[in-house]
């Protein structure tokens, strides 16, 4: 009896859940649009950092969580996008041309790294991407004449239209939301299904005619492009670059964010970015040893709660829903009996 009641009440619940999540997302976007109007400039700068790293982390998780590619070298593409934009803009290239070329350049580098690294096994792939990150850092800090070495490139000016506090923020927001939606779309496409299939069972994927290596290369290039775009947007609000952007520790950040927020959820890493940067800000103000706390939180997360905070939130919502549904069920049973 109870079972029947439940199956009957399922379809409308499913639809309302769909509407609820779309509603939540639209609410969050409206809130994000209002940030520069509500918050003081210093906080707004922090919000921009959260947004840019959210995109960086979501793109990284597209590889790690969704495609099963353990890449520890995503800072290469983030940093390469940022450096390309910085160099082009400081050498008189028009804003939009630099803005478009830089992520493409990052994608080209990603293609080269992927073609070489993906020929190896999982573990060696992870190590190689780590190696590329360190290589990129050394190159950027070594080529003093071009990149300004350890100092980097400061004082990059933005066009007037986006140099205002509000317009600068909204510009970044538009591109981040667009990129996050685009990547979500790709994840749901035929290509996304193939990637998921490869992650679940590469032998089976191959046996149904999917070229595993090639799909991984393409996934890596897409993620490289988005990470490059995040790097360009970083320059838009920071207006400077330095080689730390390319360092392997920088590559670790989006991975940690993904773990914190939940790798199983598409927007989990974005939640992770929020938490990570708040921790950095608040605990970092108290002690320079703030990474210690982040490490501790990540450790606890992995052991106790592998679904991350985002996943925890979803669990909580489902639990409440189930409880409510159970209550509804018992009411309807009472009514029918």
């Amino acid at each position: 009896m109870q079972r029947e009641v439940r199956t009957v009440s399922l379809p409308p619940l499913g639809r309302s859940r769909h509407l609820a999540s779309i509603g939540t997302i639209i609410g969050v976007i409206i809130l994000l649009v209002l940030v520069p109007i509500i918050l003081p400039p210093a906080q707004e700068f922090l919000a921009q950092t959260v947004l840019v790293y959210a995109l960086f982390a979501v793109a990284t998780n597209f590889l790690i969580g969704f495609s099963g590619l353990l890449s520890f070298g995503q800072a290469v593409f983030f940093g390469f996008g940022a450096y390309t934009a910085a160099l082009l803009w400081t050498h008189g290239v028009p804003f939009w041309i630099g803005f478009i070329i830089s992520p493409i350049a990052a994608a080209v580098v990603a293609a080269l790294v992927a073609i070489v690294s993906l020929r190896t096994s999982r573990l060696y792939f992870a190590l190689l991407t780590l190696g590329f990150s360190q290589l990129a850092y050394e190159v950027a800090s070594g080529l003093y004449n071009l990149t300004g070495g350890e100092t980097g490139i400061p004082g990059i000016t933005m066009p007037n239209a986006i140099s205002g506090v509000v317009s600068n923020y909204e510009f970044i927001l538009v591109f981040i939301v667009a990129a996050v939606i685009a990547l979500y779309w790709i994840q749901r496409s035929s290509f996304g299904m193939a990637l998921k299939a490869i992650r679940e069972n590469p032998t089976r994927a191959e046996a149904v005619g999917i070229h595993v290596y090639w799909h991984h290369v393409v996934a890596y290039v897409i993620a490289g492009f988005i990470c490059g775009l995040a790097g360009v947007l970083y320059v838009v609000y920071q207006q400077q670059v330095d080689p730390v952007l390319l360092n392997w520790t920088e590559s670790g950040e989006p991975v940690l964010m993904a773990v914190l927020g939940g790798m199983g959820l598409y927007l989990g890493p974005a939640v992770g970015s929020f938490i990570y940067i708040l921790l950095e800000q608040w605990v970092g103000a108290l002690t320079p040893q703030w990474p210690l706390l982040v490490g501790l939180v990540v450790l606890v997360m992995v052991i106790v709660y592998p679904r991350g905070l985002g996943g925890g939130f979803v669990n909580l919502v489902t639990a409440i829903r189930r409880k409510r549904r159970k209550a509804d069920d018992s009411v309807s049973i009472r009514r029918t009996s």
Binding site: S190, A194, V208, G209, H215
Partner: peptide, 10 residues
């Protein structure tokens, strides 16, 4: 999708 080579549709 795999057999028909239609997995590179983004």
């Amino acid at each position: 999708l795999g057999y028909s080579g239609r997995t590179l549709r983004f």
